[in-house]
Amino acid sequence: MSTLTIDHVSRWFGNVVAVNDITMTIGPGVTGLLGPNGAGKSTLINMMGGFLAPSTGSVTLDGRPTWRNEEIYQHIGIVPEREAMYDFLTGREFVVANAELHGLGDRAAHRALATVEMEYAQDRKISTYSKGMRQRVKMASALVHDPSLLLLDEPFNGMDPRQRMQLMDLLRRMGDEGRTVLFSSHILEEVEQLASHIEVIVAGRHAASGDFRRIRRLMTDRPHRYLVRSSDDRVLAAALIADPSTSGIEVDLQEGALHIQAIDFPRFTALLPRVAREHGIRLLTVSPSDESLESVFSYLVAA
């Protein structure tokens, strides 16, 4: 059982702040590190894994620092995001080399390859592997020494649904065995399927922390903005504002469109087509105007 403690950690590159005063504790079980691209997830994971010095603050695993401490890797398994991994070796050679570097032998390597179900392709060169196969061999290399902390940077990137499910099962199992598993992702659905605990990072800041229900609520309860064009904008606006699911409507004459702010998302999405039909209005455009991940996450910062 291991606990990773991130204590008031910041990291800047020149005058760009990548991670801004983050404090969190990662305990046993599966934790998802959620945030949009560029939020600082990789920077934070690199600091957790001891590959980057915090500018201020400290990262410790059970009280021992991860930076400049090679011994700590007896307890940490790392699955990097980058693809490169000695492509000129076979999968088996690669995992055996990783085992040897831990002072272990073929047995450990074989066990790790079995865990990720890669025995069938272990004698092929890594350069011939698909993305999912690479990911599993990376996984095997990280598991070879039976670590208590597993760090994975965007492990589901580029995986097909079946590979994704397999890896999720594996990580869930790792968490159930009492390991501390932390993975990063920019996709909420991924995180909520797998993680019992979620840490959200936006623009380098720790935006939210908790179980997925809480995070989900924070993300869906936010006001939604829509851009709607119809055959009669004013009549439509009048009918919509009468309903409590909307909180504001702007008639944009220049654009020839309505900017609608909805506060009850499910109710509004049912209301809009019904109102249009009742009033004989044709809907020409209905588009969410702030569905980008950035704006979704920005609500969490405020929350």
Binding site: G50, F51, Y73, M85, Y86, A97, N98, S141
Partner: peptide, 15 residues
């Protein structure tokens, strides 16, 4: 350059 050195560095081997 390609980042694969991480597999050497993430080991209890003195740099």
């Amino acid at each position: 350059d390609d980042g694969s050195v991480v597999y050497l560095l993430a080991k209890p081997v003195k740099r």
